[in-house]
């Protein structure tokens, strides 16, 4: 993108107040995640054998959990897990899905119609969470495997999206022209087609991050995601659920954190769509 394009984008984008708020929240969370060790008031891993299950107050902003660990510090560390789960799973999906989508969309044919498309159909007919659960059952529990599982589940969406966009744009004149000029297919695909379909991919990626955060939190909630003692919002929510009466702040804090981040990515993605790809609305 040129400077002028970025400026034009920004002028349009900033009109959408909600999207700007979303972007701001995301920015803050990125900062929190990157600098977490310098920002937390307490060591999020350090139990306190005296002050456990203490309510929000002067010493602990959001109280302590059942082992006396500072909930606020754990929430801040949790941004690391959630953001990286969302981001890395989407990157995995992009790395696998975009090339497959480009190639199948460009060449189509038997492989595309009868194998790739049917596999994506089958995968998309199952709820993401069920697939992710089944996959982590095979791969084993853990954040790394959860990210791989979520990434694989997102892949069909990108195959379909990219394939559709390629099929649309393939017939456009300048591509046909490039082709008749003797340009190699690979060059056409990556130099000419890909840049022209980046907008819908970006919009979809932003919205996928939101879903990725939810799926990771769900997996962790069910015990198949992030493993202790790493603070993750999903595991905090599930362990906090047992203390809804004695210490509601654990579950409420973690749930609110998930809600705010997912909302931020959703409204940001929505805004991006308005600016980049108005015809989708």
């Amino acid at each position: 993108m040129t400077k002028a394009e970025i400026l034009r984008f920004w002028k349009k984008f900033r009109k959408n107040k909600l999207a700007v708020i979303g972007a701001a929240i995301i920015l803050i969370e990125v900062v929190l995640a990157l600098f977490a060790p310098f920002l937390v008031p307490f060591d999020p891993f350090q139990p306190d054998y005296v002050d456990y299950l203490k309510g929000p107050g002067n010493k602990h902003l959001l109280g302590t959990d059942s082992l006396g660990r500072d909930v606020f510090s754990r929430l801040i560390y949790g941004t690391r897990v959630s953001l990286s789960a969302g981001l890395i799973s989407v990157i995995i999906a992009l790395v696998i899905g975009v090339p497959i989508g480009l190639i199948t969309g460009y060449y189509q044919g038997f492989l595309d119609e009868f194998i790739i498309m049917r596999i994506t159909d089958a995968m998309m007919s199952l709820p993401s969470l069920v697939l992710a659960l089944a996959m982590s059952a095979l791969l084993g529990a853990g954040l790394k495997n959860a990210m791989i599982a979520i990434g694989i589940i997102f892949t069909p969406r990108y195959i379909r999206l990219v394939r559709g966009e390629v099929m649309k744009i393939k017939e456009v004149q300048f591509i046909e022209a490039a082709s008749s000029l003797g340009m190699s297919d690979l060059r056409i695909l990556f130099k000419h087609i890909l840049p022209n379909i980046l907008s819908p991919i970006m919009v979809q990626a932003t919205l996928s991050i939101a879903t990725g955060i939810i799926v990771e939190a769900s997996l962790s909630y069910l015990g198949m995601g992030t493993q202790p003692p790493t603070p993750s919002w999903g595991t905090m929510l599930s362990s906090g659920q047992g203390y809804l009466e004695q210490a509601p702040w654990i579950a409420l804090g973690a749930g609110t954190a998930i809600f705010i981040s997912v909302l931020a990515f959703n409204i940001f993605g929505d805004g991006l769509r308005d600016v980049l790809d108005p015809k989708l609305k």
Binding site: F45, P47, S66, L67, P228, S239, G242
Partner: peptide, 13 residues
């Protein structure tokens, strides 16, 4: 199990 997880995390720390 919740208590096993708690115990394990204390031992770990």
């Amino acid at each position: 199990d919740p208590t096993a997880k708690q115990t394990a995390q204390l031992i770990q720390s």
